[in-house]
């Protein structure tokens, strides 16, 4: 029902293009892992390697402690939920869901019962005799999930399964996915390029870039304490202020800052920039203002360095007038080394 996955020094190349440069990753049994990154970062390649659709050029994949690097998809305790769901168009929902069980030689009645149970779990039991094309996108997505889970895999691989859904449905399906994962206890490995989706569902997020792991940690860690500029930027908007050592503290285009002596970029999320906080940034003029419902998005031009725009999200009703000059403060800054 569930198993851990160890990926050891996995490298993969397509002809001259290196898709993965030595990936090491340990996924615990029952964990919900999200592989996050822009297109071309190697996340889907890694998923295909775990699923057995690709054999890595180098390295090993262990599932439940067994080396499965060279086994095909049908011999692995994994199933994949495809981006386009890959439902069989000529079969009813019940036959789709029962397909894996049929391949395992389960008798007709037993597998139909099981398929109905699975459809019930995703709330589609009443549509068991429909064909996939009669369903909406969200419903198809549920059928694909039921089909993949019907064979009780140890590991479920999800390849951008929510990509085709509209935003509202997507948020709803995220909650459902998470709930179902808790219920069945299967290890989920989910691929996406949407960082909000990743944070909403993941136990741990693996941020990938150019075939390498940029950061791996809980959503809080990845968002609040990013290890690389890439993962810092990818997780959300970030203000960057370059700093250099001066005396016991540091200096920046905004003037001296009360931080320990170091070189790099001070990164501050917009919601951590405001009218109060531990690091004073000096005075700034508000140049643009827009209302986002939960917050005001404000663009400030610091008086010391007007060409540097700082973006702050201020709570409802706390935004100053455009043109007003206010003292800005930063909270929870993260200092990262500047990358080439």
């Amino acid at each position: 029902m569930t198993a851990d996955v160890h990926i050891e020094a996995v490298k993969h190349r397509f002809q001259s293009f290196v898709a993965l440069h030595g990936i090491d990753l340990r996924i615990a049994a029952g964990e919900f892992i999200v592989l996050l990154g822009p297109s071309g970062c190697g996340k889907t390649t890694l998923l295909s390697i775990i699923g057995g659709f690709l054999t890595p050029t180098k390295g090993k994949v262990l599932i439940g402690g067994t080396d499965m690097t060279r086994l095909g998809p049908k011999d692995r305790p994994t199933t994949t939920m495809f981006q386009d769901y890959a439902l069989f168009p000529h079969m009813s929902l019940r036959d789709n869901v029962a397909f894996g069980l049929r391949m395992r030689g389960m008798a007709r009645r037993a597998r139909h019962e099981r398929a109905t149970e699975m459809l019930d779990m995703v709330g589609l039991a009443d549509k068991a005799h429909r064909r996939p094309h009669e369903l909406s996108g969200g419903q198809r997505q549920r059928v694909a999930l039921a089909r993949a889970l019907a064979v009780e895999p140890d590991v479920l691989l999800l390849d951008e399964p929510l990509g085709a859904l509209d935003l509202k449905l997507r948020r709803q399906m995220q909650d459902e996915l998470k709930a179902i994962q808790r219920r069945v206890g299967t290890t989920f490995v989910h691929v996406t390029h949407d960082q909000e989706e990743a944070m909403a569902i993941a136990d741990r997020i693996v941020v990938m870039n150019h075939g390498r792991i940029a950061h791996c940690g809980t959503p809080e860690e990845v968002y609040l304490r990013p290890k690389t500029l890439f993962s810092a930027d990818f997780m959300g908007e970030m203000n960057r202020i370059p700093i250099t050592p001066e005396g016991d503290a540091v200096t920046s285009p905004l003037g001296a800052l009360p931080l320990p002596r170091q070189t790099g970029l001070m990164c501050v999320r917009p919601e951590n920039l405001g009218l109060a906080g531990e690091v004073p940034l000096g005075k700034a003029r508000l140049t643009e203002l827009s209302f986002f419902g939960a917050h005001h998005r404000c663009r400030f031009a610091p008086l010391a360095a007007p060409e540097m725009g700082l973006v702050a999200h201020l709570p409802q009703g706390e935004a100053p007038e455009i043109g007003a000059e206010v003292a800005l403060y930063a909270r929870n800054p993260v200092i990262l080394p500047e990358e080439a």
Partner: peptide, 20 residues
């Protein structure tokens, strides 16, 4: 097409042999 290829992939993934 891609869609059909994925369906074939899914079938293998669910344990079908090549003949199946």
């Amino acid at each position: 097409g891609e869609h059909q290829k994925n369906a074939l992939k899914a079938a293998r993934d669910l344990g079908a042999s090549e003949v199946q």
